[in-house]
Write a protein that binds this DNA or RNA. Structure first.
Lengths: 154, 154
DNA sequence: AAAAAATAGTTGCGCCCGCTACAAAAATGT
DNA sequence: ACATTTTTGTAGCGGGCGCAACTATTTTTT
């Protein structure tokens, strides 16, 4: 034992991620949104007035992607945009009334999803896994960022 | 302490997954493939003659997606297809000579990636995290499959 | 105060991926 | 043997995402 075991972290994260998207898309199929918008609706529910920049950092997502996500949320009438007074570049986002049922459904799906994935796994292992996942993501993030600075020259 | 802590497993998996794709795409930028093909090239390297079906199961990926991936690998000359003798539906896949450098690069990127993500994290925690990730993916997989059967009746 | 750099957000492009519907070839039932 | 069902692989569609290049507005330099 203690053979050179071949790490497959990436494979499992990839599989997990795809299954998760399916789970959420199915859970939200009655609404006009899916996986791509879900994180931001949930975030705006508890953080009204958040900006695109703020959410891009929180979810480590490309700003361009977020622009399109917000555009879609606007088209289905789930958010309202208000320009900042001081800085005319920034836009504050707020959920509309229409988004509330969806936001609540997202919370339900979120909870169901967690219950599903955690079946037969001890609480402590789940907590450790989540923490480790965060640490690994931070490690990769630093490396990816580093390279970006090299590319663009400092 | 011990407040009802809000699980964010999905957020971290999602972030990890996106960063991982970036990492691999950059590491493979000199070759004619990227994230989408990488898993299958690596697999065919050690499992010559594998079928689409076999890999779809291993990576829990949609068969239609794999068809396109294989098509692309064929277009850049990385794989050769051989029909099965007994069952004329199935196609066996083999890497070509041209794919070998890419396959070896993939192994390097894979190893570098693991080293990057595991910085400052104890071996045991990594091993536990990977196992837990697998168990969680299996849990979700079962639920998603279950629902599919309900949908299609039976 | 003018020039340069940083910051917030956008547009166009292409890759990756699942879904639905489909075709062809086994496998199974009667 | 023939009809039905299952299995393997495809085509078309649309969603989600990062990247490069861009605009508009601040902030920092000089």
């Amino acid at each position: 034992m203690c053979e050179h075991w071949f790490p497959e972290m990436g494979r499992w994260v990839s599989i997990f991620d795809r299954l998760m998207k399916m789970y959420y898309d199915r859970g939200l199929s009655e609404f006009e949104i899916g996986w791509g918008q879900q994180f931001y609706v949930e975030y705006l529910y508890t953080h009204p007035g958040a900006t695109s920049q703020e959410m891009a950092e929180r979810f480590r997502v490309d700003r361009a992607t977020l622009t399109k996500t917000i555009k879609k949320l606007g088209e289905v009438g789930y958010i309202r945009v208000a320009g900042d007074e001081k800085d005319r570049r920034v836009k504050h986002l707020y959920l509309t009334e229409k988004a509330i049922p969806a936001a609540e459904r997202i919370k339900t799906v979120h909870a169901d999803f967690y219950e599903t994935l955690s079946r037969d796994i001890p609480r402590e292992e789940l907590a450790l896994t989540e923490r480790t996942l965060q640490r690994m993501a931070d490690n990769i993030n630093q490396k990816v960022w580093h390279r970006m600075e090299e590319h663009h020259g400092k």
